[in-house]
Design a protein around this nucleic acid. Structure first.
Lengths: 208, 208, 208, 208
DNA sequence: AATGAATGAGGATTCATTCAT
DNA sequence: TATGAATGAATCCTCATTCAT
């Protein structure tokens, strides 16, 4: 299942992600920085990529795939919806730098830069046409949850996906806010988020 | 209350926003493009701004202020929470380009570009230290709603603000998705969002 | 004898000289700096001068005239050649900043900047066509000295002027050297310079 | 002993010096002109130099080293002080353009431009801390001359160095003066300068 | 006469990309 | 295949000068 990446290709991805995690501005990354960090020659990068944009776009895309894959594996090991959501939120906390990359990827989807165009291109290629990136995963989790039960209308499904998505997404945003850095606070909010999701799903099912 | 803007200053702001709305990539805007569009000389811009970054940052900040001001006025005319949220969502639909600017502003807050640094600077200057931009508005709406009722814990308040914020935010994201372009679909989802918010607030109050 | 200077004209001259004495680089002086320092509007300067170059050139020329005039007055009060040379060297020490301006003026004579062209223009206008700037003064001093004696050949005169000129000039250069800052050292060298000049003039006269 | 210069580095130096010799104003040299003349790309220059200033400063410094080296070799081949001084003056006449570069270098030492700051930096690096540039050479010549004789006081040495320096320097200035362009005139003055130097050194030795 | 806001030509510098080795 | 020296297009910013007030 795992696509095999060429070593130099991976080196570029890791270099881009590392530079980003160290606070570099994506739009001002230079090829020299990237290849320098990757430990390969500038010209070599052009043997694997058509240009700077492709390097950056694919790096973030690569990270997205890695994270989602790993996240989904973890989710599958949990049985209740509460635990699944909780697991995701905890992972977000645990891997803040990688999550920042994910957030940047999401932002790029609504940008107009040439990197963004590449990202959209990649999504089309992979035929990943979700409501929002990674929302497919949420849909799968929801369908799992509803297995054996009456399936709600497409409209309701969409709403639920968005509802869960938005909560998870905003939990991530909150993690970056200086005001919510204590473990206790986070735990409380996390609980409320998980409860909120569970309650909403239940209610939606009742309403059918 | 409204800060007065110098004509050339405003011309720059409108030029930046117009270019952005027409699909320009913020990170590749040139001073020549901006001043050309604003109808002023290149050098003139530097009489009002220290550099390109300041122009762009302040343009988006300006738009943010305008939109929030207008939005809050509209919210105040609505009496129920449902109507208030509905009004906001409708406005988002009605003014998609301006909302895109707002979204871009939000994204910039978590970027590392020099424009972003300017934006954060501006927020500090104005002493706007909210959980998230514009979240102060939601908090005010909530407090209005709870007037005369028992005030919930700070934790719960924070959660409610985030919950509402995330739903509104994601509704905005959904508006940009090709899949949800029919007026009917939107209406349905909008209703679900408003109901979801109301229900969650009610339940939170019950739980106190 | 003293040409009358208009107040704003003088203001410009003093501003240029002050900025130079404060360490500004002549070639990077801006009109804004000059007029700002002179306390007049930028446009006003253009009522008196055709451009930046003229301002700077005339400012240094003005300083040259002032210094030479004053120097010559002082020289006339001394009777012996030794005292005259000694007076000049002492004045150089006393007014180092103004001398720096003179040195800069000399340098400009052999430059190719537009300011330099202006300076050469000014010299021509005033019909000051000396071997070197201010060398006319030395020639006059020499002629005074030789009054009543046999006048040497033009060749010898030229050589003497150059010889004196070069010693005075280099004493000025030495003043700027970190190594010769003690009053005692200077006094000794000054004495040697004055003696050297006197001896050379005497010998030249003997040789006739 | 000769530091090896990279080809493109040398190309830049020669381009700067050629442009200067053709009458360009150092302070208005553009990188485009320099690289154009050097026959290399604009960007290439920045692989070797940190900026325009470094290019120009190092070019003049390079010329200074070349000229001094060559001059000193020639001096060593002459036996009498008269011949040594005469050789230097003749060389100055023969290589007027290169001497102009040297003069410009001297002037730069007392300027405040960014090029000048570079030059001073370079001198410090090379630990060349003479009274004046190239004055070290004069000191060496003097010490050679005094070999086997009683060495005069440091004060006298300094004075002699300055005295010789100033005559040579001013002879160079004279060469540029329109009034002294005939070979005969020059020869006469040159003779007087050489004699003057010799006499002064002799007298100084007598006075010990 | 005096001003300074407005201008835009001009130039230093950066950096993605190429290509000879 | 891997490289990095060379390139020049692209762009920010400065500042002399103008001109309406």
């Amino acid at each position: 299942m795992n696509k095999e990446y060429l070593p130099k290709e991976k080196a570029i991805y890791h270099a881009v992600l590392a530079l980003f995690e160290e606070g570099a501005d994506i739009n001002n990354l230079t090829v020299a920085e990237i290849t320098g960090r990757a430990g390969i020659g500038k010209g070599t990068a052009y043997e694997y990529f058509s240009g700077k944009e492709e390097m950056i776009a694919k790096a973030f895309f690569y990270n997205g795939e890695m994270v989602c894959e790993q996240l989904y594996e973890g989710i599958c090991k949990k049985s209740s919806l509460y635990d699944k959501i909780n697991y995701v939120l905890l992972e977000m906390e645990r891997q803040i730098p990688r999550m920042d990359c994910i957030f940047r990827l999401l932002h790029m989807l609504s940008e107009n830069s040439s990197v963004s165009r590449w990202i959209r291109e990649l999504l089309k290629e992979k035929k990943i046409a979700e409501e929002a990136p990674a929302s497919g995963m949420i849909r799968k989790v929801l369908l799992d949850e509803l297995k054996g039960k009456k399936i709600p209308s497409e409209e309701t499904m969409t709403y639920l996906v968005f509802s869960i998505y938005s909560r998870v997404f905003c939990y991530g945003m909150m993690l970056k806010n200086e005001k919510y850095q204590s473990a206790e606070q986070r735990e409380n909010i996390r609980d409320l988020v998980c409860q909120g999701v569970c309650r909403e799903v239940e209610e939606a099912l009742c309403r059918i």
